[in-house]
Design a protein around this nucleic acid. Sequence first.
DNA 1: CAGCATCCCCAGAGATACTG
DNA 2: CAGTATCTCTGGGGATGCTG
Lengths: 126, 126
Amino acid sequence: MKKSGKNIHTDTICAVDYAFQRIGGKHKGRVIYHLRNGVRRYGELRKIMTGITPKMLTQVLRELEDDELITRHVYLEVPPRVEYQLTDTGRELLPFITLLSEWGARQMGREPQCQPVLAGQSGMPA
Amino acid sequence: MKKSGKNIHTDTICAVDYAFQRIGGKHKGRVIYHLRNGVRRYGELRKIMTGITPKMLTQVLRELEDDELITRHVYLEVPPRVEYQLTDTGRELLPFITLLSEWGARQMGREPQCQPVLAGQSGMPA
DNA sequence: CAGCATCCCCAGAGATACTG
DNA sequence: CAGTATCTCTGGGGATGCTG
């Protein structure tokens, strides 16, 4: 539910701070990044997102969902399947993630080992 | 790289993750943002950066310095004066901070209460 | 003024086990 | 498969006081 005792950006003062409270978590940016090209299953994310426990991954996904940056689709089948994808709002963050990725790559002095943000068909907010 | 017992981005896998480890802290983005127009004294930052204790502010500033995103200039005078400003690398992050700020402002449905990233006109203390 | 030292505390992250 | 539930423990961060 949206009750969310954790995601309170109520006392926020400026837009930068506000934004950082929504995507500033240690793993949130990475999750958004890995959803850049569409749907991902929980297990896929778990494999990709090394260095984070399932519990944390779930928690981060829930927070992003509460923040309406991603959606969660549960398929009632056996075995169960849960798919995540970015909302429009979440997609709006991709340009910024791209910039960040490019900067990071420059800093690392080599190509990023994750794929770049392709998503040619993603409706960029004009 | 500096010694930095905290800022170890050695086990980093991708550029996004790497970048987030450097600017992903809760307050780092805000500090960078508030240094966008040039030099700031410690006390200025302390006034601007509400919701963060001096200890934390100092710590964040140190981390940013270790990461070579900001420089720290100490003036040996009485009373003491310490000035911070962005390095070139730090300045490269401004476009991204701008994007983030704009997104945050849109999400908040109103104008950001911090000034936009544009050179100082309105009453910048010298 | 611009910090650092110290004490303290609890929220957040890990590990493990279980379930629809 | 995709999570929850519980228990634990650590270290991040607050409060306070001191100093160059």
